[in-house]
Amino acid sequence: MQQKNKNNSMTDILTNMNTNVSPVERFVSATAGGALLAYGLKRGGGLGTVFSLLGGSLAFRGTTGHCHVYEAMGVDTNQGGETAPRNFKSGKSKTYENGLLSGKVHVSKSLTIDKSPAELYSFWRNFENLPQFMEHLESVKTTGEKTSHWKAKAPLGQSVEWDAETTSDQENVRIGWRSLEGADIPNSGVVEFLPTANRGTEVKVTMTYEAPGGALGAMFAKLFGEEPSQQVYGDLYRFKSLMESGEVITVEGQTSGREPQAKKATA
């Protein structure tokens, strides 16, 4: 689906350009691209320029329905088919499937915690503890023997909720879960507690979820520090600190010369 047209006028280029981006994705691209463009222009500087260019190109693919990147990758999400992009990130802990917008995001992260599998398992197994270290979780309520209700913060001050069920529960070894029908962000995963000879426990989280906006959404999230594998890693790090030192170290709320009340001292 190579664009061969060599017409000169911009109108010709736009009208003749083939559409290889699906309607929903075009809408997301146009909106997000416009926002990013505006943010980039407001921010200014080198990074601002990068954001503006990226935003501009997203807005372009949104309004025209043509994506140069997709073209180069041989992707067409406007066919309703199963065309998938080549897995150009293989070897990383995270891959995107089924097109850039509607895709699932896989995340896998490990961290060694200097506690026994039993101590870590029992804290995690009480799901109501999880908001203590999972930054985006607001609350988890146990609703049945295998079911629980989850509420999490979403970007832009929104929140998402879902019901989940425990799919596997092997004491001191692993806990698996999946979200039930109707979840805003369908997700499933497993946390494993792997003992080591004398270094504590390797805690490994593997999860998959349908990111809002797919890979494109995930890329956006990354720009604004909300990238899923970072979130999982951050949560694991806080879990480690909480388990090992009994608290999560912070500097939030400490004093500095940046406080509104701060002023140059008079001798």
Partner: peptide, 22 residues
């Protein structure tokens, strides 16, 4: 307070407070 390269300043700032149990 550090105010930039080659610049420190004595400032009146809020007193520090306990943030964690330890």
């Amino acid at each position: 307070c550090w105010m930039g390269k080659h610049s420190v300043q004595v400032m009146d700032v809020p007193d520090p407070k306990i943030l964690n149990d330890r």
